[in-house]
Amino acid sequence: MLLLALALALPAAHADLDKIKQSGVLKVAVYNDMQPFSSKEGGIDIDLAKALAGKLGLGVALLPFEAGENLNDDLRNMVWKGHYLGYGPADVLMHVPVDKGLMAENKRVTIFAPYYRDRVRLVRDVRKIPSCESVDCLMGKKVGVEKVSLAAMLLLGEQDGKVRDSVKIYDTAAAAMEAFKAGELDAVLANQSEIEGAVRGDANYPLSELSFQRLPRQGWIVGLAVKKDNEELAKALQAAANDLEATGEMAKIFAKHGVTPTKP
């Protein structure tokens, strides 16, 4: 009976990939306004989606969407079910945390192909803060963070709010970085990718690693997600991602957007 069940399941998995290939298009969900990974102007995830599809001999149809209240919502709406308003699902979702807990909570999806490790970093104007080895260097300075972000939580809560009076809240990390580059801030605490995409290696804006009690030092890894029974699609995308890594094409995509490719 087990062999019969497996035999019946295999054609369905192949049929799904075949259907995508017959359409000639890979539907890829990307987050709205997640610079430098995705925005109206483009981004790493958008270029990576096109490269992955190209390896499969397909074109790309992007499905931009606003993040839900949590990742479970995003996986439901964009991977395995679709939004109740009729948007989605896509064939694959970009920028999904490769996290055991998330995988355990979402049995209807497969999360795989890790392609980047992000971390929280401090960027400072070296002319205003010559060196920085702890949060003490931020006392009396103006430091930007994105509202409702890990960076904001860390900085506002560190050492019982020691540098709380130095913190300036912005709607997005991109807005904080714009204010920083305009000279309105002395530093910004944000994701490394968000910082690098904005400063593009400017020597006046070095990055520092600060130690926070509640910060995972290894950062977090992001990858792809497909519907659980789309096994052949997952295998094809994994092979495509491996090829992009081996040929250096993935590193070129990151470099195009000013971000250091960090292997998971």
Rank of each mutant, 00 (worst) to 15 (best):
L6A: 07
K263G: 11
L210H: 13
T260I: 09
A51I: 03
L233W: 04
R76A: 15
S211G: 09
L156M: 15
G42E: 01
V188A: 10
K142I: 12
Y31N: 11
A187C: 08
A104H: 06
I44T: 10
L71S: 08
A152K: 06
P89Y: 02
D47W: 01
L233C: 10
G43K: 02
E194I: 08
L3Q: 08
A29N: 09
K256V: 15
A9S: 13
L10W: 13
V126G: 00
I20M: 07
L154K: 13
I129H: 08
A255G: 13
L8K: 13
P264N: 05
D73A: 11
V30H: 12
A151I: 04
R117W: 06
A234W: 04
P11S: 11
A104W: 03
A151V: 02
A173I: 12
L233I: 06
L48P: 00
L4W: 11
K162T: 05
L2H: 09
F37E: 13
A198N: 12
A13H: 15
A182K: 15
A190E: 10
Q218E: 14
Q213Y: 05
Y31K: 05
A15V: 09
Y31Q: 11
H83G: 01
L85K: 05
R127C: 01
T172L: 06
D45V: 05
E146S: 14
Q192R: 14
F37D: 14
E178G: 10
D202F: 07
L93F: 10
E232M: 07
